[in-house]
């Protein structure tokens, strides 16, 4: 049976991500072992990797680095072996080079760009609730979403990508920002598929079966 590692580095609501992946796999008629883990050995042989994240960029990046051998295993499995990867919320934000939340922190730098505060232009902050993710190019995973499907957001920071083709979807709240990213085997979503009811489960169902 294929395994999916949900990376546990002390951040957020991991249980919901785990439950949603299991439900999505069941809906796709795929048997998957989903494990919330900080064990580098498990990550190194996982078929797929999900990196959740809640809270501040610096704290999440610090948590990832503090777990012995975890960041190295993640990099090796995703960057060297090309395992399918999905970052969720701060887990997506960590993909860029720099986080500018509170202090300047180095990210994973898998995609050129920075993570900075959303400029709401009079709208509410945090950006909280259901908003449309407009998919900008065909993608086997993101095509699961209807053209402007509403998905659930809860964040105040966004990624500014240097490479436009890394953006897979855009959302507008005060300003327009990348709400999904895709580069080769690496995907990220600023929204929470595990909290986006059928739309989110449909996306995860594609992810658990996706071959980049």
């Amino acid at each position: 049976m294929q395994t999916i590692a949900v990376i546990d580095y002390g951040s957020g609501n991991l249980r919901s991500v785990e439950r949603a992946l299991l439900e999505a796999a069941a809906r796709a008629n795929r048997r998957r072992e989903v494990r919330v883990t900080s064990d580098p050995a498990f990550v190194r042989r996982a078929d797929r990797i999900v990196l959740p994240g809640q809270g501040a960029f610096a704290e999440c990046m610090g948590g990832l680095k503090r777990a012995e051998g975890l960041a190295e295993a993640l990099v090796e499995r995703v960057r060297t072996d090309g395992a399918p990867f999905l970052g969720v919320c701060v887990g997506m934000q960590l993909l860029v080079e720099l986080g500018l939340e509170r202090e300047t922190t180095a990210g994973l730098a898998w995609m050129p760009g920075v993570c900075r505060k959303l400029e709401p232009h009079g709208a509410t902050l945090p950006h909280m609730g259901w908003n449309a993710a407009r998919i900008v190019r065909p993608h086997p995973v993101f095509d699961a979403l209807a053209p402007a499907a509403h998905v659930y957001f809860a964040h105040s920071f966004i990624v500014d990508l240097k490479t436009e083709t890394d953006a897979a979807a855009f959302t507008t709240h005060g300003e327009t920002f990348a709400s999904a990213v895709a580069r080769d085997n690496v995907l990220g979503v600023q929204f929470h598929p595990e909290k986006s009811q059928d739309a989110g489960l449909a996306l995860l169902a594609r992810f658990v079966d996706w071959t980049p």
Partner: peptide, 28 residues
């Protein structure tokens, strides 16, 4: 376990540890 929609829980939250416990139990 069964709802894939955001869940807010209040009542009796007195400390940072109470918040953590709620989030770990599955509250958003």
């Amino acid at each position: 376990e069964r709802c894939f929609t955001p869940l807010t829980v209040g009542g009796g939250v007195r400390a940072v540890e109470d918040v953590r416990a709620l989030l770990l139990a599955g509250a958003d």
